[in-house]
Design a protein around this nucleic acid. Structure first.
Length: 283
DNA sequence: ATGTGTTCCTGTCCGC
DNA sequence: TGCGGACAGGAACACA
């Protein structure tokens, strides 16, 4: 579930259970996700208070009282479940861990935060809070698409001279960070820009239209709680319904939703990933 | 420097 | 119901 709007939704869901709370117990159930988990991860989390939960691109940043920050990336299939102690039995307890529950954090308030990731493309690391921006995973990523640094001038400069298709350009986290396959398709459809268009060939006018469209798509998706695809494990945080607003993504063969456009959505493959677009109105 | 293809891993869905 | 192949929200890495 992992583009910017979904990650932001997860972050928002974690705030009430984690912020200001002490991590009472950290159960690291396997030593690695995409990469090895940090050394002594359990000890470095246990007893630490969560000062704040931030997001950078598709990363959740958990700032701890120890001056360290837990960096979390959900990869392709990562999700975070929140559970509370089951009452009614004499011993209050949580549901038994499920398959692919790799990291389980018990908060002092009784809430349990479980990181589940079947494919294990996700990642976690611990680093000094002061050094988060220079962490190897974060140091080269581009500006936040909802921030001021992402604007017409910036994007024009980034796209200038680029031969790659627009689809690839917007997926490139160095150009702008946080977009993924869904929201790139959606933004390009709304903007009437073909995903195959060479990035360097966009007109200035086209770029000036695209920037606010990207912002709007993301903002609307965040407001909808993100998009829920095949999995909707009801963690607080993944109740999204933006998938109902898709105009292109996963709509192959269906009518284009652009006003008065008689076209239908096509699916093509670009650098190994599905692209959905309307060949009629996206040029 | 740029752009593309491969790779990591597991689960699900679709056609036979 | 089983089996094989395609495909899945990401992105680092190797290579032209």
């Amino acid at each position: 579930m992992p583009e910017l709007p979904e990650v932001e939704t997860v972050r928002t869901g974690l705030v009430p259970v984690m912020e200001g709370q002490v991590i009472a117990r950290a159960d690291i159930r396997r030593p690695d996700l995409r990469w090895p988990l940090p050394d002594n991860m359990s000890d470095r989390l246990t007893g630490k208070r969560v000062k704040s939960l931030r997001r950078r691109s598709k990363y959740i940043l958990v700032d701890l009282s120890s001056s360290e920050t837990l960096i979390i990336h959900l990869g392709m299939s990562g999700r975070i479940l929140i559970s509370n102690e089951m009452t009614g039995s004499f011993h209050h307890s949580h549901p038994a861990p499920e398959k692919h529950d790799h990291v389980v954090l018990d908060m002092e308030n009784g809430a349990r935060v479980t990181f589940n990731d079947a494919r294990r493309f996700g990642a976690m690391d611990l680093t000094l809070t002061a050094a988060v921006e220079t962490h190897w995973l974060l140091k080269d990523i581009g500006p936040e698409p909802l921030g001021n640094a992402f604007n017409e001038n910036y994007l024009a400069a980034q796209l200038m001279g680029r031969q790659m298709p627009m689809k690839s350009a917007l997926l490139d986290q160095k150009i702008v960070s946080g977009l993924g396959n869904i929201y790139v398709c959606e933004a390009l459809n709304r903007a009437g820009i073909s995903p195959r268009r060479k990035a360097g060939n966009l007109t200035r006018k086209s770029i000036s239209r695209l920037v606010p469209i990207i912002r709007n798509v993301l903002t609307e998706a965040i407001a909808a709680g993100g998009s829920s695809l095949r999995d909707f494990r009801q963690a607080d945080g993944e109740l999204g319904y933006f998938q109902h607003a898709f105009r292109a993504y996963d709509r192959e063969g269906k009518p284009c939703k652009t006003l008065d456009c008689p076209g239908e959505i096509a699916r093509i493959v670009q650098s190994g990933r599905s692209t959905y677009y309307c060949p009629r109105c996206q040029r």
